[in-house]
Simulated assay, not measured.
Amino acid sequence: MPRRIRYDAWSPDDGRRTRRGGVTMWTSPWCEPGFRFTDLVASWQADTSGGSWIEVGAQARGERGWHALAHWQAGSTATCRSSGRDPQVDTDVWRPPGGADGYRLRVTAHPSASGRTPVLGRIGAVVSTGTVRVTTSSPLRREERVLDVPRLSQMTWAEVGGRGWCSPTSVSMVLAHAGTLPPTTDTGTVDINRVAREVFDPAYEGTGNWSFNTAWAATLADHAFVTRLHDLRDAERFVDAGIPLVASVGYPRGALRGAPTHGTAGHLVVIRGFTADGDVVTNDPGAPTERSVRRTYDRGQFERAWLGGSGGLVYVIHRDDQLLPRGAWSAANA
């Protein structure tokens, strides 16, 4: 089956609100993507100040019950943050058995002990199905375009856990490019140790939860969400719009020539541009030093690692003045 992808998002003015006890629930409209999807990844923007928190759930068309996707609370000392423990949910991906023709999302707003209520800004989800492409995409153009994305290395924090911090390090680089990442140390540098605590998922026991990384980024940037792309031609359109992407890759040992991570089941890097030949210019946080973070990868090798490793998953983080490219990746274009 050809690859099908669709991203949709809603604001609090969409859907409907209900109250039950001391909590408020918001339910999105039903979404029917036009194909039977096999996986869903949600992302959201919410203010959970003062100890408030939200619960995110999903329901398939024709089902009576809901599937718990996540509990979310921002902050490095959050106590109400965990991925869902539903048997159909794998950390950040909901896979309905046999697929589903439609879905809706629900956000339950839990107030803090002092009565402060969380505020939902936006919530969306990407659904997909079908096989990824196996042939290398041709470049959109034959000229170099590389964005000026600051370089950060997770490995400079290896002694305190940094070997597993590729996702928060990549997000930090993109936020720094957008000009929305404040320095987190007295010397004006980025404390990746602190950033890692902002996205840590105790159920997953790591910092690689896709939804949590964009939820944290959304507290600093105007927009942040998870989606999937068909190929590197889609990624080129984002770079042309001035928006770097955080891409999830996975590849066997030796399959991505020049990578500091020789083989991995899952790793996050920043796509910051393309050479005139169409090869991919990245900031790879797995490099041993910040000086060596910039890496250029063969287009075919990178595309296979990205599409085969995660189905083309990316984090999109951007300001209001950075307009998203139009394309088949999204019906709503966030």
Rank of each mutant, 00 (worst) to 15 (best):
L40A: 08
R95M: 10
A42R: 00
R95E: 04
C80P: 03
G102F: 05
V134E: 15
W165A: 10
R61G: 11
R122A: 09
A109F: 02
W157E: 13
T129C: 14
H110W: 09
R116Y: 07
G99A: 10
W157R: 07
W44R: 03
T129L: 09
V127G: 02
G162K: 04
A100Y: 01
M155C: 14
A58D: 05
R142V: 05
P87M: 05
T129E: 12
R141H: 12
R116P: 00
R95K: 06
R151Y: 04
L69V: 08
E55C: 10
W53R: 03
A78G: 08
T108N: 06
R95H: 08
L140H: 06
S49K: 08
A78I: 03
I123K: 01
G65L: 07
V127P: 02
R142C: 09
V149H: 00
Q88C: 11
G124K: 05
S138P: 00
V134T: 15
A113H: 08
W165G: 02
R133V: 10
S43T: 04
W72K: 06
R64G: 12
T91F: 12
G62S: 14
A158W: 04
L147S: 07
S128A: 15
E144W: 09
A68E: 12
S83Q: 05
H67Q: 07
P111W: 02
A68H: 11
D86R: 03
V160R: 15
L152H: 01
G102R: 01
V149D: 06
V93H: 08
T108Y: 01
S82T: 10
E63S: 15
S49T: 10
G57Y: 06
R151I: 03
A46C: 05
G161C: 00
A74S: 15
S52V: 02
S138D: 01
C80H: 14
D101C: 08
A113E: 15
T117G: 09
G130N: 08
T108H: 07
A113T: 13
P168Q: 13
G124R: 03
S82D: 12
S82W: 05
Q59R: 15
T156N: 03
G98C: 08
T79Q: 13
D101Y: 07
G62I: 03
G99I: 11
S82P: 02
R122Y: 09
T136P: 07
R141S: 14
R145T: 04
G84Q: 03
L40C: 07
S138A: 15
G50Q: 08
D90A: 13
